[in-house]
Design a binder for these strands. Sequence first.
DNA 1: AAAAATTAGTTCCACAAGGAATTGACCAGC
DNA 2: GCTGGTCAATTCCTTGTGGAACTAATTTTT
Lengths: 201, 201
Amino acid sequence: MREKSARRLRLQHNDAFMVENPALEDGAEMLSRQRLDAFTHARLWKNPCGFAARFNYLALRYNVPLYGWVKERFDLSRVEFVVIYSLAIQDGVSASEIASSTAFPKNTLSRAVNRLICLGYVARRIDGGDRRAQILTLTEAGRAVVDEAMPRFAGLEQEMLAPLNLVEREMLSMLLAKVVLAMFHSESQTEDGGVPSTEEM
Amino acid sequence: MREKSARRLRLQHNDAFMVENPALEDGAEMLSRQRLDAFTHARLWKNPCGFAARFNYLALRYNVPLYGWVKERFDLSRVEFVVIYSLAIQDGVSASEIASSTAFPKNTLSRAVNRLICLGYVARRIDGGDRRAQILTLTEAGRAVVDEAMPRFAGLEQEMLAPLNLVEREMLSMLLAKVVLAMFHSESQTEDGGVPSTEEM
DNA sequence: AAAAATTAGTTCCACAAGGAATTGACCAGC
DNA sequence: GCTGGTCAATTCCTTGTGGAACTAATTTTT
């Protein structure tokens, strides 16, 4: 079944690139996949939005297996795990802060939080100052989940970065930082007010 | 509101990375000036999975507005547009090829394709050689959609890349390419299979 | 000090998305 | 020419998501 799904969905190495990288070439099975390869290849490289295609591809290859694992291991949905993860990064924030930061809709978050409280991963207390707001904190159990999951998340990231040496990683990190910071900045003055909303980690 | 949350949780602005990258100093400065909400900041910079956080953030900021616009403008869902977009990049592929390449489930794609055919954006003909497979092609109308949408997609990408000069863009492109290609390659031999599948562009 | 506007969180509901099982076409092997 | 296995595409069904409307607490306005 493991074999199955690996075979089932997927793209694989690509030919045009192989030509210039004979080191990566490996055998007959590539041939059967050539056509598909070409298509995926085109989507990543012959695309007017190549940058977007790449980070979308990375996001896909990162999120899908990890959240799939989270689902299997802890039976937590992506949103739910994001809440836990968020609290691990900064404890004591409110649901709506997570909402605005992750762009999940409030109701989706509300549900997630309630389930997490049921499961005992998260505790909620009312903010003294503002009785509407509820401050969320991780419980022991919640912390344990993060502690178990985090290495896996960090591990896949490291795996992804494996082909880069240290200098290159620094460089990539810096370049992405520049882009991200600029978007951050521009966000504040977008007229359009209010991104429609969708998921993120 | 952004003001609000910034006030409530103070901005601890960090971090090892900034220190060794003086080029970004002004970025950090910019952040605090903008009173960027501290939590989002933490998620992006104080995160053991910083690389992942960044490309996820980019994907979010890219996809949400664009697909929101597509929905409004053409009343097409993300999957549906992905089909059109895929055909624009490489015409004449089959639904299942798009499926494997984008990791959308087949049934979701089937629905999307059927709707697109109804709407007249896509035409389908049976493959002469294999009567199971159906070759998809863009119609005039479909092409028109892409032609209208593409500049917007490319435009946002350019906007995102604006803070980088040409050399930096080259560099970023190259580094991401390295990572993507390695994943591309490694994918064929991933052990830990069962990838559930989710969206992508 | 009452009314209006804003904000946190929840509830309700319609619907889109994906897993599983199904149909029909193809390609073995014997 | 059958039989079993695979693959493309579709249909069915369950679930999760997110929009909109709602409650309650708070802030602002006049």
